[in-house]
Simulated scan of single mutants.
Amino acid sequence: MINDNQLEEIKTTLEQHIQALDLKGKPSELYDPITYLMGLGGKRIRPLLTLLAYNLYKEDYQKVLSPAAGIEVFHNFTLMHDDIMDNAPLRRGKATVHEKWDDNTAILSGDVMLVKAYHLFLSIAPEHLKESLQLFSKTAAEVCEGQQLDMNYEKREFVSEAEYLNMIRLKTAVLLGFSLQLGAVLAGASKEDASHLYDFGMNIGIAFQLKDDLLDVYADKEKFGKQVGGDILANKKTYLLVKANELATGPASESLKKWLNAEAYNPEEKVKAVTALYDELKIKEKTMELMDDYFEKGFNQLSSLQVKNTNGLQLLQNLTHNLANREK
């Protein structure tokens, strides 16, 4: 079984497998954007979780590299299309596909990525193929549902806490849950363990998004690597804004509305003013409390697993803790 020193080996093996995927073809205008986006890297958290979950039960994780890579291809497909919808100029510090090529190319290339993701799942053993595809199809639809809700909420003045949490569950957390669940299914784990791993991924996925929301406002500027307060400037519906809208009354409410509706403003002044409102309403503390609750719910699921590979379990926990404690 793996130990801490082998995590980098697994990451390297996974990355080599991803880079060796057959994602090229003709016309080049259709396939070049795919290899470009996949070549930009990323943390590869989702396929890594699949491999770590599989390894809780079996040692030969190399056998499931292709379906794990399929999850990463799907994830990047969603990013390619999300960037078009968000009109985002950069992805991982480089030009987005729709900026480097055009919107139509990015749409069509993304469509092919979804097809390629399903193709990679065909490497799954016959006894697990139907269940895996059913779970993947359900998850893929939920991710799209989450993205649509996200777009819907940007047009609304008020979004409830429950609505926001459900949106990030669909848009972000279900794919993390599925990544872990797939590893368990492919390893022949019990239904109970697969369910516990799914719930673990769901809960930490929500916690990770809350962490992202927090970092955008409260991160150390030197460590964050991008503009602090970008979500505030974009009036993005984060948990912090949703909670502030819910709690603000009187002058605080009027001030928040003023900044949200302002068309001309000094960016630094707006970030400073809205952050001060968050501080006044103790939004940071409330977000951290909820985030910690979700992390605790997630880790509680791991204690219910029936696995003998305690080192592998510790590795999964360590990886999650490191992500939870990140500063960028």
Score class of each variant (00 low, 15 high):
Ile2Glu: 00
Gln6Phe: 11
Gln6Lys: 15
Ile10Ser: 01
Ile10Val: 15
Lys11Leu: 13
Gln16Pro: 00
Asp32Phe: 11
Asp32Thr: 14
Pro33Met: 13
Ile34Arg: 06
Tyr36Leu: 11
Met38Ile: 15
Gly41Leu: 06
Lys43Arg: 11
Lys43Met: 08
Arg44Glu: 03
Arg44Tyr: 07
Pro47Ser: 12
Leu48Cys: 09
Leu49Gln: 08
Tyr57Thr: 02
Tyr57Arg: 06
Glu59Lys: 15
Val64Pro: 06
Ser66Gly: 01
Ala69Pro: 05
Ile71Leu: 15
Phe74Met: 07
His75Phe: 10
Leu79Ser: 02
Leu79Trp: 08
Met80Lys: 04
Met80Asp: 00
Asp82Phe: 09
Asp83His: 09
Asp86Ala: 08
Pro89Met: 04
Arg92Pro: 05
Ala95Glu: 13
His98Thr: 04
Glu99Thr: 12
Asn104Ser: 13
Ala106His: 09
Ala106Ser: 12
Val112Asn: 01
Val112His: 06
Val112Ala: 14
Leu114Met: 13
Lys116Thr: 03
Tyr118Thr: 07
Leu122Gln: 13
Ile124Ser: 06
Ile124Met: 04
Ile124Leu: 05
Ile124Gly: 02
His128Trp: 12
His128Pro: 00
Leu135Ile: 02
Phe136Met: 03
Ser137Glu: 02
Ala140Asn: 04
Ala141Gln: 12
Ala141Trp: 12
Met151Ser: 06
Asn152Cys: 12
Lys155Phe: 13
Arg156Cys: 09
Arg156Ile: 05
Glu157Lys: 14
Ser160Lys: 09
Glu163Pro: 08
Asn166Ala: 14
Arg169Ala: 10
Leu175Asp: 00
Gly177Gln: 04
Leu180Pro: 01
Gly183Trp: 13
Val185Gln: 08
Ala189Asp: 01
Glu192Tyr: 12
Ala194Gln: 13
Ala194Tyr: 06
Ser195Lys: 13
Tyr198Leu: 07
Asp199Asn: 15
Phe200Trp: 03
Met202Ala: 08
Gly205Glu: 03
Leu215Trp: 03
Ala219Asn: 05
Asp220Leu: 08
Glu222Trp: 09
Lys223His: 09
Gly229Arg: 04
Gly230Tyr: 10
Asp231Leu: 08
Thr238Leu: 07
Thr238Asn: 05
Leu241Glu: 03
Val242Tyr: 08
Lys243Gln: 14
Ala244Ile: 07
Glu246Phe: 10
Glu246Gly: 01
Thr249Met: 06
Pro251Thr: 12
Glu254Arg: 14
Ser255Gly: 03
Lys258Glu: 10
Ala262Glu: 10
Glu263Pro: 00
Glu263Asn: 13
Tyr265Asn: 05
Asn266Gln: 14
Pro267Tyr: 12
Asp279Gly: 04
Glu280Pro: 00
Glu280Thr: 11
Ile283Tyr: 01
Lys286Thr: 03
Glu289Pro: 00
Glu289Lys: 14
Met291Thr: 01
Asp293Asn: 10
Phe295Ala: 02
Glu296Met: 08
Glu296Val: 09
Gly298Met: 03
Gly298Asp: 02
Leu302Trp: 06
Val307Gln: 02
Val307Cys: 06
Lys308Gly: 15
Lys308Ala: 11
Asn309Pro: 03
Asn309Phe: 06
Asn311Asp: 13
Leu315Glu: 00
Leu319Asn: 01
His321Trp: 12
Leu323Phe: 14
Arg326Ile: 13
Arg326Glu: 04
